[in-house]
């Protein structure tokens, strides 16, 4: 996923870049603000982070122009949180609105959400290694046997299924859970993982959720 940052404050631009890169996004920033609209249109990106107060041009005007030509979501960033700004951001076609100072988690969640909104795929079930996770009934099925999961257990398994083969650290899992309004702490996460493993064993899935010592979990 590639993000484009349009922000005239040098320090913020640099730090934002570092932050988003550390989250695994590809990030590009615009450094000159003479022909912003042309510059933006010339770039390839999946999401645009756009400051409202820019030299030469106002963020809303830019947004309107860009939206005529590009579909990629635009998130506005601003230090003024006034209703009129929020309204203008919607009127000019912005997808979301973040207020400075950035809170890391809120910014990341809004980016995630904006990107997901444009993603047309919606699953009903996910199958990994012949194991089926029913997303509507929160059940796991394996060889004619099935077991129902609690909300938390289901969520944990869901993230592992979405990232098949990848090791998810406890921190990463917690971040996923928190973003989706499941506020588990480490202890409760561990309890849930253990319960989940037990339930999986009951339907014949021994050691399905594997541990990579000191790193995290994977399926």
């Amino acid at each position: 996923m590639k993000l484009l940052i349009v922000e005239d404050d040098f320090k913020i631009r640099e730090e934002l870049k570092i932050l988003l890169e550390s989250e695994g996004y590809q990030v590009e920033a615009i450094d000159f603000f003479q022909n912003i609209i042309q510059d933006i249109i010339g770039k390839e990106y999946d999401l645009l982070l756009l400051d409202i107060n820019l030299p030469n041009e106002n963020g809303f005007t830019i947004c309107k122009e860009i939206k005529k030509r590009k579909q990629a979501p635009i998130i506005f960033v601003t230090s003024r949180n006034k209703e009129e700004d929020e309204l203008n951001s919607i009127l000019s076609g912005g997808d979301d609105f973040v207020v400075k100072p950035y809170n890391k988690y809120i910014l990341l969640e809004k980016i995630r959400r904006a990107l997901k909104l444009n993603d047309p795929t919606r699953y009903k079930e996910i199958v990994v290694h012949d194991v089926l996770l029913d997303l509507h009934l929160s059940k796991v099925k394996y060889q004619e046997k099935e077991v129902e999961l609690t909300r938390n257990e289901f969520r944990i398994l869901y993230y592992l299924f979405l990232n098949v083969g990848q090791v998810l650290s406890k921190e990463k899992l917690i971040q996923y859970l928190w973003n989706d309004q499941y506020y588990l702490d480490e202890t409760i996460l561990l309890v849930n993982i253990n319960r989940l493993r037990k339930k999986l064993e009951d339907i014949g899935l021994n050691d399905f959720v594997k541990t990579k010592r000191g790193v995290g979990y994977f399926v």
Binding site: E15, S79, P101
Partner: peptide, 17 residues
């Protein structure tokens, strides 16, 4: 309060990184 948010945002991102 609005102006000061820009430098705070910069420091906050710096601390985060």
């Amino acid at each position: 309060a609005h102006e000061i948010k820009t430098p705070i945002a910069a420091i906050s991102l710096y601390a985060e990184n």
